[in-house]
Design a protein around this nucleic acid. Sequence first.
DNA 1: GCTTGAACCTCTAGTTGCTACAGGGATTAG
DNA 2: CTAATCCCTGTAGCAACTAGAGGTTCAAGC
Lengths: 157, 157
Amino acid sequence: MTEDATHPTTAGPPIGIGDLARHSGCKPETVRYYERIGLLPDAARSEGGQRRYYQRTVRRLTFIRHARDFGFSIEAVRELLKMADHPEMPCDEVDAFAKHHLAEVESRLQRLAALRDELKRMVTQCAGGRVESCRIIEVLSDHRLCHQRGEHGGAMR
Amino acid sequence: MTEDATHPTTAGPPIGIGDLARHSGCKPETVRYYERIGLLPDAARSEGGQRRYYQRTVRRLTFIRHARDFGFSIEAVRELLKMADHPEMPCDEVDAFAKHHLAEVESRLQRLAALRDELKRMVTQCAGGRVESCRIIEVLSDHRLCHQRGEHGGAMR
DNA sequence: GCTTGAACCTCTAGTTGCTACAGGGATTAG
DNA sequence: CTAATCCCTGTAGCAACTAGAGGTTCAAGC
């Protein structure tokens, strides 16, 4: 992906790293980090050497932040970006990627839903009681959770 | 929390760090790490200096792993354990904890559910197509996600 | 009772994904 | 033109583990 000042829509003047970060919900340090590890291309520079960005990069960074927020690892994001950068490729890889992550996402969802239910129950029923009657602690101690709903998951690779 | 060889049920002989780890779905290194940072008490030792554990610790470690898996930070887990260790305490703190985390958990749930739907759609519809028609990449690029479903979340404090 | 191999010990260093300085230069509003 | 703000590079720190080096202990089989 390269910078393109002649983009038809919303081209405007290039923006600085701070604005880019603000638009995508992260910090300038994070942007520089992504550039360093190659998720973002080397930015164009002003006369004085400061980074200048166009809309393409806002979109790319937004993509990265969403994918990270969904729990994809940096390496998984790198894969996704490679696919997004080559839209003429057949879909097989994205498809395989989806299959690989679907089960993991579903198991996380179920476990999170169980936690939400417990938190909800507590907020509505717990006021004034004592810790011994709080089921959240019981729920977290219950080993059957593992077998009922799949193993502990780490980051998505 | 101290080790108690005289626990009535399932007392049996003490177990080593490897068995403890296996029972709780983590590695010996992680157990030693938790001991070092004070989530687990200093373990009893064999004559030769190896760690020996009783059922209490299996339960405590299971609790910790579940809480971590649900996305609670180590410091959040420390809070929860403090509450679990003092069941005579009034419930207020656990209640406050629940309130504080409920919104975060719900927003994560919604975003994860959106991702699951996309992954599912892809797995069923995408075979044989090309990347340009894969909506997962579109969805991840769409900034409206942020405003519709809450901001990007980090670890739960 | 002895051997042997797996499991364990401590200590240190590496990993991932950022985040926070320090010590300086660039840009821009007034 | 100057002050405030932004940005630069480089390094170091953080959370939450994970992996190794180099040595010790345990327990099962003979």
